[in-house]
Design a protein around this nucleic acid. Sequence first.
DNA 1: TTAGGGTTAG
Length: 528
Amino acid sequence: MDARRAFDEIPDPNPVIVTAMASGYVRNNLVYHSLELFRAMIASDSASVVDEAAALVAFSASARVPDRGVTASLHALIAKIGFERNAGVVNTMLDSYAKGGSRDLEVARKVFDTMERDVVSWNSMIALYAQNGMSAEAIGLYSKMLNVGGGIKCNAVALSAVLLACAHAGAIQTGKRIHNQVVRMGLEENVYVGTSVVDMYSKCGRVEMASRAFRKIKEKNILSWSAMITGYGMHGRGQEALEIFTEMKRSGLRPNYITFISVLAACSHAGLLDEGRYWYNAMKQEFGIEAGVEHYGCMVDLLGRAGCLDEAYSLIKEMKVKPDAAIWGALLSACRIHKNVELAEMSVKRLFELDASNSGYYVLLSNIYAEAGMWKDVERIRLLVKTRRIEKPPGYSSFELKGKIYLFYVGDKSHPQHIEIYSYLEKLLERMQEAGYVPNTGSVLHDLDEEEKESALRIHSEKLAVAFALMNSVPRSVIHIIKNLRVCSDCHTAMKFITKITEREIIIRDLQRFHHFKDGLCSCRDYW
DNA sequence: TTAGGGTTAG
């Protein structure tokens, strides 16, 4: 590096020069070299020569390395040289605690609570919560900022951070409130805020609102377009996703690695087999983008679900990158749809070599055996789960009522209204069965007798959440449910009957995509 | 010759 040679020739570099050198390292991703300079400063006890700028550069460097020790020694240094009240320096430290490898949000919060906060401090803390999936904390802190923030007003940065939290939680009511604030502040055209609004509405099930917000963004960048493509894709509206993609290219923007993940995922959700194949090839030939593991994942999913299991398997075999668990998982999932036990067993073998701790794969394989009536193998998998001490993340569904998020776990009885919810659900099930609903017991894991299987299905979290929503929401309003796993096929069928009987619209976001249930039909046309 | 916070996939 030329800069380093020049730096070494300076006999007694002052802090300005040291800082410039360190910052050069950070820009070139040579973070450790940068930190080395600051370590030397700390060690030589020359704290007096470290100025504010140097401390800022040091912390932004430490935010990029997984070394909590560095952040901690810098933390000690700023106290020593009297920068602990300097908002600029402390804000950067706050960020480095949470963004460095330690992901130490608790320490970050402690720093936040004791510092003299300015608008950047609030925004950083809200963003850190939002980026780490702690939506309730992010939304709560945003409200706190407006109420007790000592006159701090929200700005574009706070809005995009809190919108991310709403998107993650599927908090449509809060999201709409924030959107109103965006409109009042005239920030609809802002590319950061606008893109966040698009993302929020997409992930809260309102793709039309997302589209309207998208049109208002003045200078759309690649992220705005990708967000809109993803939005249509998640809702199974593959053709519209492709139209946006075409429009993006016409506007002069070049699609990148992530854009193609959005495009291929959209094809996969909508079952657009030919289009998916076409864009997969064009990605390399026309745009020079080498397929990454995520693109292969989309293609295996697309081919597999369309029933081209052999082609999906061949694609995996010819991959230039090492297939990861998600790839074999996509094939396994396709094996379930097309009831291919043999290929499923092979996929699982490869899966367990990569990641034997993920409960999802055991459940999937067990379901495949169960649907094939191979109960002995189901039992074998259950034992494996036990002996390997595999922990299942509990399945839950959530529903937002008057701005508050209610969570329902499988068989949940913790809700104060649970007796009413269960009896409401019983009555609903009776009416559904009169209308022709037959519980699909094939999706039950355990080797239970038929009656037991039926009662196991009744208490799935999405059914509980929908019952609660029907009991408490405004009549005729659309019901939004967020689920942390995939919807099972019985719940999918049940929702269709529920919309028919109650004449209500239900939108469920699961781990993969959206299902819009209306008048006894689902937007996915049962392709999922 | 230096300086803190925000948006896209799965």
